[in-house]
Write a protein that binds this DNA or RNA. Sequence first.
DNA 1: AACAGGTATTACACCCGTAAAACATTTTCT
DNA 2: AGAAAATGTTTTACGGGTGTAATACCTGTT
Lengths: 168, 168
Amino acid sequence: MTDDIVASVVRQWQAVNPELDTGPMELIGRINRCAALLQQAEDAPLRAAGLTRAEFDLLGAVRRTDRELTPGELARETFSSGAAVTKRLRVLQERGLVDRRSDARDRRVAHVRLTEEGRDLVDRLLPRQLAYERMVLSGLDEHSRTRLSTQLSELLVQLEGRIGGARR
Amino acid sequence: MTDDIVASVVRQWQAVNPELDTGPMELIGRINRCAALLQQAEDAPLRAAGLTRAEFDLLGAVRRTDRELTPGELARETFSSGAAVTKRLRVLQERGLVDRRSDARDRRVAHVRLTEEGRDLVDRLLPRQLAYERMVLSGLDEHSRTRLSTQLSELLVQLEGRIGGARR
DNA sequence: AACAGGTATTACACCCGTAAAACATTTTCT
DNA sequence: AGAAAATGTTTTACGGGTGTAATACCTGTT
């Protein structure tokens, strides 16, 4: 069994201070490191399409809910600030991928929808993206992947309850 | 079994397009979401000490290797760009937490070490940080945590081989 | 009519990474 | 040996993305 970066970091800490309870680091460090590596890899097909990860998340949120969303809803859905959403919307609109429609009743709110072009882009890009991700994960067999997913789901439920606080 | 955010996102995609092989999303989405939630929580004790996560990582790298590191080594160790390290070093030096010493032999390189104050800060902060992290993870029992760690380690080894490329 | 609360945008500051620059060393070639 | 080129290390310049806070705008209530 070869060990990963986190294991070697933990070993260094133990050498410097054996008192340290490094338990949490082993889990959190691995989650963070996996996330970093995955995101780095993950973004490759997106970059090819000239999209940021955040932009793709936004487009995906509109596509998958299959209705118009307000900027506020998009901010909650994509876990980013309202200001960030506003700016992303501006550039996506300039690129002709999304469209704003202002509400008739309540003129504070805007409704965001995909243009036909935006929708096509997502529908073309997502399968490619998923195929790429499957390739990146191909080092793990099916069983390991689902087992890992399941266990992360348990953790995620805990964390959402403990920290996430706001839910839609 | 209640389901997490990722499960509901996957369900939305399936409703919109049942053809989609969402397998990779379930794993990658959960890793990313866990990482985001953990980092958000994780940074609380650090903010209390007026440190960024990245700054703490830098200080920690110097502390745990227990020797002087060059900016280049620090960049590799903390997975960030050289420029980012330079700037962090500047502010940490202004705060009196680190110290630069230039090499006698090769005047290109600088050696970074912790000041006594910097070292004390890390030694005070890390146990507090770990205790906090343990609390955040307390929803999972010991066994689940180590199982999850182990499996993530397998994934991490795969990813490092596949993507990570550069090792020290 | 004033106010309280909600929604989106704008202003500002921060942090980061890429690319270029500045500087030092080592290697190569004559 | 000495100059030139290639390499290595750090810093600076610049542009882009993000979040917080302030602003503009709107609705519903009292």
